[in-house]
Every structure is written in structure tokens, then in C-alpha cells.
Design a protein around this nucleic acid. Structure first.
Lengths: 242, 242
DNA sequence: CGAGGTCTTGAAGACGATCAACAAACGTGG
DNA sequence: CCACGTTTGTTGATCGTCTTCAAGACCTCG
């Protein structure tokens, strides 16, 4: 259940047995959340952090006038609000985009762990920095890619990240979000998301049904999206086309 | 010279005398850079990190086709590439936007420091998380604000951050960038930047000459930009464990 | 005082939003 | 298993914002 998380954590140098055991022991029993449930509210000051075990959730910044922007999407194995451990007040909310399974750790426990095991602290820091790098990539996506490229980039990123933690099924993966939800991610109207999906299908790049995405032409997608996965800090991902 | 940095660092709980002395001792002598010089190249694997002492620099993500996007602007006291300390390969370049004064620390020294002083590690981690929160704010700005609001938000953010480290002169501050440069930040063409600046002036919100910005109507700017500075984490964070 | 960079303004065009209507899929209860 | 209501997906038409192209004015610094 914690495998995806441990895999990500190991990327920055595998934790020792003691470190791993101490960390896992600190987690509270898992909970299950419905799609749409709020995990953390903007401006709150949480005393625990949340690890996502299954499903998708997102970070939502709300503006004064009620407009909202998703700033990140998280999947199984992601520490959804580790930054809350070092930051004081939350600058955004965290919401479940699909039904989710989560486990939490008290900040007091994290504090003890990180002061006892400096290398563990560094590994956790690393995870938050990958999030930051992903933010930067999204910034360039919003700034420099048109709607079609954004759609292709999302598919590339999701496939790569899911594949990394073993959550793909060949060239397929499950992505149970509505087109309106995708619009929140890509910052497009739901009407335009529909046209983008239609176009990606028409180009023979993906098969994107209600809840599943299948990669049909990985090189084509990568080229269209100008996908360059350095920012994800993964080991080289095997080419799904072979 | 290090005051702005120390002020930011202290926000997460002031470092002890020993911590502060050890940290400052690790910096190499300062260097001066010209506007346009590259501090770090995308995809490199640096062995030191850079602290900005004066001037402005930015983080630049380059796409395969040569398009570029500024993903962050840094000012005096900002640790420009602290994330390179925990991340492997750089996912972006760092360039001087104006002439800059910098100081560097070897990663090996940082590693020793953070393993000796876990609380110092936490303070540095905090700084990188403020950067991440700022990325999120920019994401919502690109996604949900129109050109005029983006301009107003940039002015609000710059004023607030510069004021925090004592680099404002009353309602004025120095911002020696061309309108084309501002366009790179706001993700607007230089033509449209010009129209935004003109509009902000016409509304009596700012006086924005070649190299200086003066705030004329702060409440008006804040309202237009929907500026909500929680993400900058300028309130001191209570640290119960100290 | 000349030259190159920067700022300013106009006009045309592209991209995506919004509005509106309808079709298809889902799920819930009878 | 079907009926019906709700959510989600699909398509067309119009509109607004920002881009691009083009040209001229203004600095600033050699």
C-alpha cells in the first residue's frame, strides 16, 4: 500500500531500514474520501500531513471573487501537503478529485523523524522540490502551449508518473475525471476541453473514453506536447510503444 | 549585505548564533553579473547554490522549440537555486534580469550544515516552499487573471517582497526591466504590456517610468489584482519546539 | 548628433470563452 | 429490467482578449 510512496522516496537515495520503519510507523490508519471532499482548507494551519494511497487529488487556489485554479494534481504515493509541515498557513486547499485513500502523519512526529534522521528530511525535501519543479512546468504549459499541446502534455505527464509507480496497464491508465475537471487542470472551458480531446483522438494519439486513457502514439504525443520529463526527476522511463 | 537573506531565514524561527555563523562562513566571496548573464543552465548538475545579494534574476524554462517562459523572479536575499541542492539535474536556467551581485555556497558545505543543524535545514526547506507557494500563485495568475490584473498583481507582489527586506523607498521602488522583460514575466506580448502599463497609469494606480515604479493607490491595486499575500508567508511562523 | 534600443499606437487576425441547444451515458428507484 | 432524471459529452455560433505585424516617436549613450 505504501509501495508507490517508498519508491518515490527512494529516488533520492533509499532510506535505511530504521528510517523506513520509523516513518511508516508514524502514519495513522488509512481513511477513504469521496470525490469532491476537501482534505485541507485554504488558510488553515494543519497539524498533520496527508499521504495519498490511491486516487487523484488536487491543490486548489481560490481567489477573492470565487474563481478557482487547480495548481497541481496528485496521484498514489504523493505526499499531498508535506509543504504544510514547513509552511505555516496553507495558501491553498487540497481536494479529492476522485475517491481517494489517504493516511496522515502528525507534524510533531515528522519533526522528530526529521531531526533524528537528517537524510530522511532531505528525502522529504526532495519530494517537495519535485512538486515545485512540476509547478514550473505547468507555468510554462499555461504560458507557452496552446490548448491542444496542454492536453497532450497532461496525458504525457500522467502516463509517465503513473507508470513510474506501476499504476499503468500497458499503454492504458485509469483517469476517472470529467472533462470539466480536466478543464480546471488545463485552465480551459469544458467546451474547449471537449474539442481538444476530440482533436487528440482524431490525430490517432490517444483513445480517451469516459474513465480511461490509452496511449496510441507515444512519440507523436511527446512531440506535440514537447514533453521533456527531466522536471519529474525520474529514472528513464521505458518507452511504452515497445 | 546578507541582511535581507537573514531576515527571510529568520521568518521560520531565528537561527542560533552558531547556525548563522556557520552558514555565513560557508559562502564564497561575492561576484557581480551583467543583465542577461546566465547563472545556471537548464539540465546542468550544479555543485553549488547561489544567493542573490542585489538585483533581480529569474528562472527560465526553455522548450524544445526555443520558446522560453520565466517561472519566477528573485530579488535580494533570495536563494536562487537552493532546490538544486536537493534536486539532481536542473529543470530550468537561472538568468540575471538586471545586474546582480551574488554569493555561492558549495553543496558539500550545505550538506554538512544541514546534517549538523537539522533546524537550519528546516529553515532552508521553508524558503524553498515559499518559492513553491509563489509558483502556485503565478499559476492562478496566468490561469484566472486578465492582462491588467496580472500587471497589478506583479506590482503588488514586487512591492510587498521588496518592502519586506527594506528595499523600497516610501511608495517607490526600482525595477530596471524593459517592458519586453515584463512581458516574459506576465506572459504577454510587449505590445500588450505597454497597453497594460498605460491602463494602470490612466487609472491612477501607479507611476511607472523607465526604471521605477511608484504606488499611487495601493488599495486600488490590491482590489484590482485580488492580491492576497498569504502565499508569501511574511507573518513570522510560531515555532513551539524552540 | 546619430544610431539602436525602447516605447507607443493602429489594424487585422487567431484562439479560446461564452451562450445555447441537444445527445448520450449513468444511476436510482420502481 | 425499464423509466426517468441528472450528469456528462458534443456541436454550432458569436464575441472578446490578446497576438502579430507594421510604423513612427522617444530616449539614451556612444
Amino acid at each position: 500500500m505504501f509501495e508507490p510512496f517508498l519508491k518515490k522516496l527512494s529516488r533520492h537515495g533509499p532510506p535505511s531500514q530504521a528510517e523506513q520503519a520509523a516513518l511508516l510507523a508514524a502514519f495513522a490508519p488509512t481513511r477513504t474520501l469521496q470525490a469532491g471532499e476537501e482534505i485541507l482548507r485554504q488558510f488553515s494551519e494543519p497539524s498533520e500531513s496527508t499521504l495519498l494511497l490511491s486516487g487523484f487529488c488536487g491543490r486548489l487556489v481560490s481567489l477573492v471573487d470565487g474563481a478557482q485554479q487547480l495548481t497541481a494534481v496528485h496521484l498514489a504515493g504523493d505526499f499531498v501537503d508535506l509543504h504544510a509541515f514547513v509552511l505555516g498557513r496553507m495558501d491553498h486547499s487540497v481536494v479529492a478529485l476522485t475517491s481517494c485513500q489517504i493516511a496522515t502523519v502528525a507534524h510533531s512526529a515528522l519533526r522528530n523523524l526529521t531531526e533524528t534522521y537528517p537524510r530522511l528530511a532531505r528525502s522529504l525535501w526532495f519530494l517537495t522540490m519535485v512538486d515545485a519543479a512540476t509547478h514550473r512546468q505547468w507555468l510554462t504549459t499555461l504560458g507557452r502551449r496552446d490548448a491542444l499541446q496542454r492536453g497532450a502534455h497532461l496525458v504525457c505527464e500522467l502516463y509517465t508518473r503513473l507508470n513510474d509507480v506501476g499504476l499503468t496497464d500497458g499503454q492504458k491508465f485509469s483517469f476517472p475525471m470529467t472533462q470539466a475537471g480536466v478543464g480546471d487542470i488545463l485552465c480551459l472551458s469544458k467546451v474547449h476541453v471537449n474539442r481538444v480531446v476530440k482533436d487528440l483522438r482524431a490525430r490517432g494519439l490517444v483513445a480517451w473514453s469516459r474513465r480511461d486513457i490509452e496511449i496510441l502514439d507515444w512519440p507523436g504525443l511527446v512531440k506535440l506536447a514537447e514533453f521533456e520529463p527531466t522536471y519529474l526527476q525520474l529514472e528513464p522511463v521505458p518507452d511504452p510503444a515497445r
